[in-house]
Design a protein around this nucleic acid. Sequence first.
DNA 1: CGCAGTGAGTTGGAAAATCAAACTGAGTCG
DNA 2: CGACTCAGTTTGATTTTCCAACTCACTGCG
Lengths: 156, 156
Amino acid sequence: MAAPRNPRPCSIADALALVGEKYSLLVLREVCLGNGRFDQLVRNTGAPRDVLATRLRRLVDAGVLAKHPYSERPQRFEYRPTQAGLELEPVLMTLMAWGDRHLREDRDRPMVIEHACGHAVVPVVTCSACGGQVRHEDLTAHPQAPGWTVTGPTTA
Amino acid sequence: MAAPRNPRPCSIADALALVGEKYSLLVLREVCLGNGRFDQLVRNTGAPRDVLATRLRRLVDAGVLAKHPYSERPQRFEYRPTQAGLELEPVLMTLMAWGDRHLREDRDRPMVIEHACGHAVVPVVTCSACGGQVRHEDLTAHPQAPGWTVTGPTTA
DNA sequence: CGCAGTGAGTTGGAAAATCAAACTGAGTCG
DNA sequence: CGACTCAGTTTGATTTTCCAACTCACTGCG
């Protein structure tokens, strides 16, 4: 009885519950750029210090970031991405490309990422099975949990 | 004057400012799945109704979603992704794959997306120039704005 | 007609998160 | 010693979120 809130079970939701809080992905961006110190993170993300401390704790606990000491004696740490953290970087790249494309008319992209091949990265999401692009019209969703359809739950 | 907070200028930040608020990407997920009606969105995302209304307004204003009437007289609408919205779907797919990989040990993925090629989508982010995978170790960042380095601003 | 029901929100107030600035504490530098 | 750095923590004030209840337009049903 009483279904308080049971939204669709989904790894997108799970992922966002972890890294979707305000500033978390900006922290990851900075950490991937090599700016892993607390005060750098404050400056570069704009996060309030207390919020940042909270986010960092969560991300470390979840295994997305790890703390690395860069100085004993005046004990100092630096945050770095774990393997899991690094694997989120393609998500950031794709999001950046989307922002560049849709949130800026002109060519004033504030940051360009260069790929090992020598070109500016323009990420394309592809299907690992066929190599083709992952586009909406080529996708069909198959919810595995009972009761969760894609055309509308209809509940009954 | 007084520089209150000027974080790094970046399209990731801009994109997140728009679609990074709680529930926004879940709304987009549902809308891409074809569940674009208000009450469906409430049920499937778990968002409070007032928050959902606020998010929908923003996403429509920003051109990520559009309102489509599916009934005159008892005026009823449905939200659908615009082209810009659809182009965010690959981001969702990549995020879902990350969640499947890192937030679940077993193979109980709650939703499987099938690609036109017949296989379950396992998205890979590639460089459009060379076709190679976009991985951290192959990337070099080039901030375009002055004062924003990748090894630490140093401010001075 | 009268009245329960649906869809798409809006309203009101309590609870939680965010924000800014000041503070702490270990330790170094001059 | 006194000033400074870094990595946070504390303290209140401000904003958001959350939830339940309510509205409004309209559609059946009997």
